[in-house]
Design a protein around this nucleic acid. Sequence first.
DNA 1: CTGAATCCTCGGAGATACTG
DNA 2: CAGTATCTCCGAGGATTCAG
Lengths: 135, 135
Amino acid sequence: MDARPASTRQMIEIYRTSPDGLANCPVRDVVQNVFGKWTSLLVMALAEQPYRFGELRRLVPDISQRMLTQTLRDLQRDGYVRREVFPTKPPSVEYSLTDLGRSMHDSLQHLLHWAAANHAAVLRARAAFDATEAN
Amino acid sequence: MDARPASTRQMIEIYRTSPDGLANCPVRDVVQNVFGKWTSLLVMALAEQPYRFGELRRLVPDISQRMLTQTLRDLQRDGYVRREVFPTKPPSVEYSLTDLGRSMHDSLQHLLHWAAANHAAVLRARAAFDATEAN
DNA sequence: CTGAATCCTCGGAGATACTG
DNA sequence: CAGTATCTCCGAGGATTCAG
């Protein structure tokens, strides 16, 4: 429809023409998993440096240990995170980003920084919307 | 902590030091709302051109009309989408991206394209993980 | 220290029917 | 045509307890 190489139109077509309808859409399959409640935060942390389980737990105090375990496992499963076990006296496990994870983080960065920079604008929009909606 | 202007470390600090803990974190507040099941798809569609309600419905056949209404409303509330009502004989409503929405879409693009390009790699990682996990 | 196993809650999301 | 109103279901996510 237009000249752009990977146009939004093409992206929509990818959504629409995926095997089992939209359920197995490639883009969504990836993106949805990136937007769990804790995923982006952990990816950001691990993009900075490798961390051990307990370090991540202290770094993100609000996460439950169940969610930390599960999110790390999901990230590992999708190939974003590497898990290394060191058989020390109390066992220690180190998590780090793979090349795939680093690559994904680079693309995610744009949105994260945009969000940080434009949060105020979104809040203003919300307040204005709620105000005009209240009548 | 380091030289990067908006470093991941700073991003993590933004997460950690937000008013009510992580609950009202600016970054997450924005990002979470962008990753609803249909949000990115609708933003992509509207980034291409304005659409009317029924057009969006046909463009995304799998979405229920309830979710279409609700997602569009959420997008409008956060200032990403403008809603214009034309009092024609059968009323018609047109949705289009605002400047804020277009700006957000530009940042989201990177991840969407990354997802489309790297979906195969993720699938391979998953298969390998599940294989070694099966024993 | 690094998890696994259970139980429970809450909200996202779908199906269906009705309305200006 | 463009929505609202209910009902329901399911799974993400949390709290707690147990284990290597």
